[in-house]
Design a protein around this nucleic acid. Sequence first.
DNA 1: GTGAAAGCGCTAACAA
DNA 2: TTGTTAGCGCTTTCAC
Lengths: 328, 328
Amino acid sequence: MPVTMKEIADAAGVSKTTVSKIINGTDNHISEETKRRIRKLIEEMGYVPNSVARNLRSQRTGMIGFILPDITNPFFPMMARGIEDKAKMLGYGVVMCNTDDNAESELQQLNFLTSKMIDGIIFIRSLRESSMKRALQSKVPIVIADRDIKVASDGIGQVFVDTVGGIQLATNVLLNSGCRRIGFISAQQDIEENRFDGYRRALAKAQISFDEGWVYTDRYNVETGREGIKSIFRHGGADGIVCGNDLIAFGAIQELKDEGYQIPEEVKVIGFDNIYFSQYTEPPLTTIEQPAYEIGQCAAEMLIENILHGVPLGRKILNYRLVSRKSV
Amino acid sequence: MPVTMKEIADAAGVSKTTVSKIINGTDNHISEETKRRIRKLIEEMGYVPNSVARNLRSQRTGMIGFILPDITNPFFPMMARGIEDKAKMLGYGVVMCNTDDNAESELQQLNFLTSKMIDGIIFIRSLRESSMKRALQSKVPIVIADRDIKVASDGIGQVFVDTVGGIQLATNVLLNSGCRRIGFISAQQDIEENRFDGYRRALAKAQISFDEGWVYTDRYNVETGREGIKSIFRHGGADGIVCGNDLIAFGAIQELKDEGYQIPEEVKVIGFDNIYFSQYTEPPLTTIEQPAYEIGQCAAEMLIENILHGVPLGRKILNYRLVSRKSV
DNA sequence: GTGAAAGCGCTAACAA
DNA sequence: TTGTTAGCGCTTTCAC
C-alpha cells in the first residue's frame, strides 16, 4: 500500500490539514520549521498524493480523451503528438480511442470516456450527426479537429484547415505549370465534399469546363489512387492529377509509372497532407501540407484552457502550405 | 451537476445500498418490484455512476499507461492499435505517453502515470536501467514490449520478438540468394546489440569472416541508411545489405539507386519490421516482419489479466516472418 | 499556526 | 429483503 497523507501527518505529529496545506502551497500560515520537517518526511517516506482522491473532491481527472478514426493512418500520429505534447505541458494526460470511422464505435468510445469522467474530448473526423448529438448532451467540453463540420452549436470548439482553399491551390499549381486536363481522385463526395469544391472552383476560375470522366472518388487510400488513374485514363486521360490525400497520390504515381508515364513530364501529380513518406516517393511528392502537429496542439490548448480557465471554445483555422518537390 | 446515487435512493425512498446493489448486479436479495422501480428511476433521471468515486474505493482506475518512444515512428501505431483494441475488449482504457527515447522524459511519464493511479504500464523500448529501477519501485505491474532487455527481475512481464533470430534469417536470405559480401546497417550497438549478433552468427555459420568495413551503426532512421551505404561503399562495397529496420532500408535503397546500382541485381537489400510503406518502395522491400499488432495485443492481455485476475506476468516470444518482395 | 470535522460518491461488512 | 455505518484519501471551511 502506498503512503497516505494521514501516515505523514501521524509520523510528524500534526494533522492531515497541515500536510495538505503544505502539499498544495496554501501554507502561508505554517511555520517554516514545520514545513521543513514535513517536507523531509514526505521525501523520506516517498509520499505521492493520491490523485483519484483529489479527483473525487475536485471533480476533475486531469485527463482528456482523443477520439480518432485510426492511429494507423499515417496522418494521425503527428496530430496525436501535438495533442499529447501540449496536454502534458498543461498538466494533462491523453486517452486514445480509435473508432475506425464507425458510428457505433464512436458512441462506445464516447460513453467510455464520459463514464471515466474525462475532463474534455478532442474528436477527430466524425461526420455522423448522431454521435455528435450524443456528445453534445454530455456536458464535457468538446473540440472537433481536422474537419469543417457544419455544427452550428456553439459550445463546441473547432480547429481545422481550409481544405477547399488547399485543394484549390493544388489545382492552381497544376494549372500554372501548364496542365489543362486535370483529374481529381479523392474519397466519396458524400463523406467529404469540400475537397471536390476546391477543385471545381479552381477549374471554373481558369475557365476550364470539367469533365465527369476526370473524377474518381472512393476512399482515402493507395488503392483508390491506382483505381482512379485506371478510370481516368479509360476516359481519355489527363496531364495532371489532384489527389485528395497523399496515400491516393502514392497509388496514382505507382499506377502511372506502371503504365509507362513519365512523372512529371507527361503527367503531374499533387497530393494533400504531406505525410512523412511523401518525401520518399519517386519522384518525391509535391503536396499541400496540413500542419497536423499544430492542429493537435491548438485543439489541446483550446480544450484545456476552457477546462482550466473557462476560456470559451472557439473556431480556429490553420494554414495549409505548398510543399514543392518533384512530382509537378 | 450530475445525478448521484443518493438522489436516486431518495427519490425511490430506499437507501444508497439498495441502489448500489442493483447497479452492481449483487441484487439477489432485492425484490423484483424494487429493482424495477429503481431501474426506471435510473433511466429517467439519467443516472451514471461516478467512476472516480468507484475508483477511490476499488483502488483501480480501469486505465493502463502506454509509454513509447514516439507514436510518429511508423512502427508504433500498429502496436498502439493492438494494445487499445485488446484493452477495450477487457474494459480498459489506454493513456499514451511519448518519451522520445529520452531518459528524463521516461521518468516524468512514469511519475505522471503512477500519480494518476493507472493500474498498469506497458513500457516500450527503454533500455535505461535507471528508469527501470524507478518503475520497479512503484508497485504497478509492468510489461515490457518489443525488446529483450536483460531484466532479471520477475514481476515484470515481457513480450518480444526474437530479433537475433530474425536478423539471422535476414542474413541467411541474402546468403542463400548468392550474396557473399554482406553489409549491416543498424542503430548503435550499445543501444541494440541483438541485431548485430544475429548478423554475426549467420555469417559465422556460413564461414564468412566478416569485415569491419561492412558495418555501419547510428540510428533507426532513413538518414542512417543513406550514410551506411556511403560508408560501406567507401570501404569496398557489398552485394547485400542487412538493415536493422525498414526505415534504414529505405535510405539504403535510395542511396544505392542514386549511385546507379541495380536492386536486386547488383545489390540486394533486406529490412526488418515490415512497416506499412515497405510494400511501396521501389523495388518493394523484402523484409522480416515483426507482428506489431500482435505484440500490442499480447502485452495488453498479459498486463490486464494480471491486474484483473492475478495471472502472473510472463515472458512471451512472438514469431518473426519473412516477407519476400523484390529487393532480394 | 494548527486542527476537527464534514463531505466528494461510492461499496461492503454487518445488522435488522 | 433492506438499511446502517464506516471508510477509500483528500480538501476546505471554521474554530481554537
